[in-house]
């Protein structure tokens, strides 16, 4: 009897589900119109600010003239791209962009994971919160401020750190004024600025780990290191994978402000990057077609990398992004 009742209920619920799924989209909109109206705001935002500007890509295929405007400028096919690839700074910019961003990916991506693991292990709540807040703070400083600070602290002639080194009997170090030193300083400053902020997502993922797993590991005799290695890291692995895939999208881009704020004209080996060229050609020289073509090139490579990384992740058994 009980079984019969259960079957009946199951059938009813299945037919209700079927009926609901048969309803037209109009029914859903009428029923939940308030929610859809709310949804309109972010959708319009994304449409206006993310999709409409995509039409600007046309400029990369035109000899853009500021007076003729967007539509009346002449079509030139792929000429702008051909010219772009032949320009002397292009290859250097690609090399530097890859070098800076891949190094950055390795350092700026891994260090927040270690930091999040360490913060997660801190027992004292107040100590933990204070530390978290302190390491977030640099994220809120703009790169212009960071650049000025960097030269005040690390400048060769009068930087505070070099003054200290000299007072302690050491030799001054050209942190920002020799090419190789600049590269390491650039990466280190980036890590310092972003590592605190980068921990947020990992800490959130770690707070979602089932405590029973830690209890079970404790029963099995695992120490803290083992629990971190065998419980925490496997549990946040999907988050790490998604963030790696997203980060790959920026490998051909990167921050213009960061390079611009930290560069000086005596150490330029690594400072000609794609965003710097986009600024120089587009904003300084008014060559909007070349700047747009470079932006398109950068975006396409970024997209390809994201898709590839997603495929690889899926083949490796992860959920992936798309």
């Amino acid at each position: 009897m009980k079984l019969k009742e259960e079957l009946r209920q199951k059938n009813e619920s299945a037919s209700l589900k079927k009926e609901t799924s048969k309803k037209s989209w109009y029914f859903h909109i009428r029923r939940d119109w308030q929610l859809y109206v709310l949804l309109l705001i972010p959708v319009s935002f994304a449409f206006v600010f993310k999709y409409v500007p995509l039409t600007g890509i046309l400029v990369a295929f035109k000899d853009y003239n500021i007076i003729k405007g967007f539509w009346a400028s002449e079509w030139v096919g792929l000429d702008v791209f051909r010219d772009l690839f032949a320009r002397p700074d292009f290859l250097k910019a690609v090399r530097n962009t890859l070098l800076l961003n891949v190094s950055d990916l390795v350092l700026s991506f891994t260090i927040p994971i270690f930091l999040a693991l360490l913060i997660n292990e801190i027992n004292g709540n107040i100590f933990k919160r204070v530390n978290q807040t302190l390491i977030y703070l640099p994220h809120f400083l703009s790169w212009v401020i960071m650049g000025a600070l960097a030269y005040q602290l690390l400048g060769y002639g009068s930087g505070m750190v070099n003054n200290l080194i000299e007072q302690l009997g050491g030799n001054r170090i050209p942190f920002l004024q020799s090419d190789i030193h600049w590269l390491f300083s650039y990466l280190a400053i980036g890590v310092w600025q972003g590592m605190g902020w980068g921990t947020i997502i990992y800490l959130a993922a770690m707070s979602g780990v089932n405590p029973e797993l830690y209890e079970a590991a404790t029963v099995d005799g695992a120490n803290r290191w083992r629990k971190m290695w065998h419980v925490t890291i496997p549990c946040i692995r999907p988050t790490i994978v998604i963030l790696v895939i997203l980060s790959l999208g920026h490998v051909m881009g990167g921050s213009f402000e960061r390079v611009y704020a930290l560069q000086n004209m005596a150490t330029t080996e690594f400072t000609t990057t794609i965003p710097v060229l986009v600024f120089r050609w587009g904003i300084e020289n008014g060559d909007y077609s070349s700047a747009t073509a470079l932006g398109v090139f950068q975006a396409v490579i970024g997209l390809v990398l994201v898709v590839l990384a997603d495929q690889i992740a899926k083949k490796a058994g992860e959920d992936g992004l798309l």
Binding site: M265, A266, N285, D287
Partner: peptide
């Protein structure tokens, strides 16, 4: 000149500093 001005401006700064220093 319109085409190369910005590139040459940046390159001049880079090169003259390299030579002088």
């Amino acid at each position: 000149q319109n085409r190369y001005q910005a590139d040459l401006n940046a390159l001049f700064q880079e090169l003259y500093l390299k030579v002088v220093m």
